[in-house]
Write a protein that binds this DNA or RNA. Structure first.
Length: 472
DNA sequence: TCTGTCATAAACATAA
DNA sequence: ATTATGTTTATGACAG
């Protein structure tokens, strides 16, 4: 089917349903070994677009793949056939979307490949069509879909703003009807119409958007909706991996999404100090770094500032140095490293949970859902993340997924240094914390269509001071 | 169960 | 008197 679609280069949308992974694998092999598909892909620049939106928890046999050869023009996820990429005579033989700077760019992989050939070898061996790759692919699809949804929403918002301000749009594409937006927004609908079985609300089908990924004991429950506070699980220092990479990688995400960074105060303070040119900061500069880098720390100022001071005093690794202008804080790296290392071991709940592919996405979904719930966003209909956040969310999600996979493959004993902390998955611990939906109305709000639930009207003790005072 | 880590809250001191 | 900064203690949650 895939071959014929590609060969004809039609705009057919073909839905493959009821396929179990082995069947998929077989099909994949057939396609990738097909000259027809290969040539079609090469000549017509079409590609396989596997569009699905949900990782089914218990029913991999319900996997649906929507194949749209034209989808690549819509900016949607394109999955190139390995065979095609492996053709040495192709003009693009040495450029591959998944290969660059000598590194495999498969989400969360980053394996070093000396040359293109070794990359191909690596690609075929490490990222063959199996449950893991399939799950990763699904996650990527979800990410792309959410991005598209968010883009559509933001463009709409921009248009509304411009309309409101009576500003003529200088960018024609700012109108909310670009092709890619329409197509992306209606993607699920299209898929649904094309295949009633893939209706998002169908429990056993994987077409639902990003949030309802889990089945059964879903992260989103009536009670958990009230537990959407910060994810307190920390990992950066536990796995002895630098948080700088994560922060850098997800900088825009943290800047805009009021999601608690999964790092300890100590780690964050250290990062702030180390990022400074002279490796020293005043307390106030540390404050500023927190508010600048993390939307989360633009509220509850009294609380977290107290925590920062507390940490500075408590930990020996933070050294106060008297300065001409006052006092600055520095980091004693030795002391910092001295802290009792905590390494991950086989997490029973994790190991138990990752037996089905849907759980590969669960922890990050928790974060995502937390953010969504925090904004009272209907989980199914919209993405709640801020404009630039989902790209970083995507990488976080990928890494989370890969972390889970890593545990699957290594029996949870692997915590190799250098990996992005997100790759080391761990259970998410969500703590109940007063939430105020009104906070979301701030200048950095991520909400476009929030429906504030009275359930979220809790304390407002964090409004004890202007939250944006330090924002640059 | 014990222990260490962490977040949070709060009391208190000191200097500007 | 107020505020910012810094120290210390207490408590509870959590994980190993």
């Amino acid at each position: 089917v895939l071959s014929s679609v590609l060969a004809k280069n039609t705009s057919h949308t073909v839905t493959l349903q009821g396929m179990i992974p082995t069947e998929l694998q077989q099909l994949w092999k057939e396609v990738t070994s097909s000259h027809t598909a290969e040539e079609a892909a090469s000549n017509n620049h079409s590609s396989l677009d596997l569009s699905t939106t949900c990782v089914s928890s218990s029913a991999p046999s319900k996997t649906s793949l929507i194949i749209n050869p034209h989808a690549s023009t819509n900016g949607q996820l394109s999955v190139h056939t390995p065979k095609r990429e492996s053709l040495p005579h192709e003009e693009h033989s040495h450029s591959h979307p998944l290969y660059g700077h000598g590194v495999c760019k498969w989400p969360g992989c980053e394996a070093v490949c000396e040359d293109f050939q070794s990359f191909l070898k690596h690609l075929n061996s490490e990222h063959a069509l199996d449950d893991r790759s399939t799950a990763q692919c699904r996650v990527q699809m979800q990410v792309v879909q959410q991005l598209e949804l968010q883009l559509a929403k933001d463009k709409e918002r921009l248009q509304a703003m411009m309309t409101h301000l009576h500003v003529k749009s200088t960018e024609p594409k700012a109108t909310p009807q670009p092709l890619n937006l329409v197509s992306s927004v209606t993607l699920s609908k299209t898929a649904s119409e094309a295949s009633p079985q893939s209706l998002p609300h169908t429990p056993t089908t994987p077409t639902a958007p990003i949030t309802p990924v889990t089945q059964g004991p879903s992260v989103i429950t009536t009670t958990s909706m009230h537990n959407v506070g910060p994810i307190r699980r920390r990992y950066s220092d536990k796995y002895n991996v630098p948080i700088s990479s994560d922060i850098a990688q997800n900088q825009e995400f943290y800047k805009n999404a009021e999601v608690r960074p999964p790092f300890t105060y100590a780690s964050l303070i250290r990062q702030a100090i180390l990022e400074s040119p002279e490796k020293q900061l005043t307390l106030n500069e540390i404050y500023n770094w927190f508010t600048r880098m993390f939307a989360y720390f633009r509220r509850n100022a009294a609380t977290w500032k107290n925590a920062v001071r507390h940490n500075l005093s408590l930990h020996k690794c933070f050294v106060r140095v008297e300065n001409v202008k006052g006092a600055v804080w520095t980091v004693d790296e030795l002391e910092f490293q001295k802290r009792r290392p905590q390494k991950i071991s086989g997490n029973p709940s994790l190991i138990k949970n990752i037996q089905t592919s849907h759980t590969y996405c669960t922890p990050l979904n928790a974060a995502l859902q937390a953010s969504m719930a925090e904004n009272s966003i209907p989980l199914y209909t919209t993405a709640s993340m801020g404009n630039p956040t989902l790209g970083n969310l995507a990488s976080a999600m990928r890494e989370e997924l890969n972390g889970a996979m890593e545990h699957t493959n290594s029996n949870g004993s692997d915590s190799s240094p250098g990996r992005s902390p997100m790759q080391a998955m761990h259970p998410v611990h969500v703590k109940e914390e007063p939430l105020d939906p009104d906070e979301n109305e701030g200048p950095l709000s991520l909400v476009t269509t929030a429906n504030h639930s009275p359930d979220f009207d809790h304390d407002r003790d964090y409004e004890d001071e202007p939250v944006n005072e330090d924002i640059e």
